[in-house]
């Protein structure tokens, strides 16, 4: 098993922390994992993305030319990554900020109103963790508890952010779970 996920959005939307928390959770589970952020001049335009590869054997390349999953937090990221995603791959999009929808019919699309859900928590900046919660519920790439431990470790020095991120994670997770059950 080798699953590669690209997280993409504007700088400041927390796309790098989404990827980092996922990679950290994979490390907790003892999986092989790589995390590769975009760097240099590429990030100066305000967009940010990172690639997380998770596997149960050695990972050759941390780069994903055809990712299994793409998490899209803004319009430019949709345009950039919708043609790279693998046939049968899953695109997660933040339906509050992404206006267009992918033109491809050979991929699965999951929409999450991340900003609305984060707003109900009184924490607009937690939209990324709402997305991560929904992502985990759908992909089962790692266990929810592992993500929770990862958040606790990564934000251990910022107690408030830790609590809020854990809440947001659960909100996203429950949102996708309910949708699945009601479908």
């Amino acid at each position: 098993m080798l699953i590669k996920t690209v997280f993409a959005g504007f700088g400041g939307q927390g796309v790098l922390s989404m990827g980092y928390v996922l990679a950290y959770a994979a490390m907790i589970e003892g999986l092989q994992v790589t995390y590769l952020p975009s760097y240099g001049a590429e990030v100066r335009g305000g967009t940010a993305n990172c690639t997380v590869a998770v596997s149960n054997e050695e990972i050759a390349s941390p780069i994903a030319s055809t990712p299994d999953n793409v998490v899209v937090m803004n319009n430019p990221s949709l345009e950039k990554f919708q043609h790279q995603i693998l046939t049968g791959g899953v695109m997660f999009l933040n339906s509050n900020l992404v206006e267009q929808r992918p033109v491809r019919g050979d991929i699965i699309v999951r929409e999450i109103p991340c900003n609305d859900l984060a707003h109900t928590l009184g924490s607009d900046q937690s939209a990324n963790m709402v997305m991560l919660g929904g992502f985990i519920q759908q992909t089962s790439l790692v266990r929810l508890e592992s993500i929770q431990s990862a958040i606790s470790d990564v934000f251990k020095e910022k107690k408030k952010a830790k609590e809020m991120n854990l809440k947001a994670l659960n909100v996203g997770y429950d949102y996708m779970k309910n949708r699945e059950e009601n479908a």
Binding site: Y20, A23, Y35, Y39
Partner: peptide, 10 residues
């Protein structure tokens, strides 16, 4: 190389 320098691994 640049990739090794940027990539995170446990």
């Amino acid at each position: 190389d640049g990739m090794m320098g940027q990539m995170m691994e446990p």
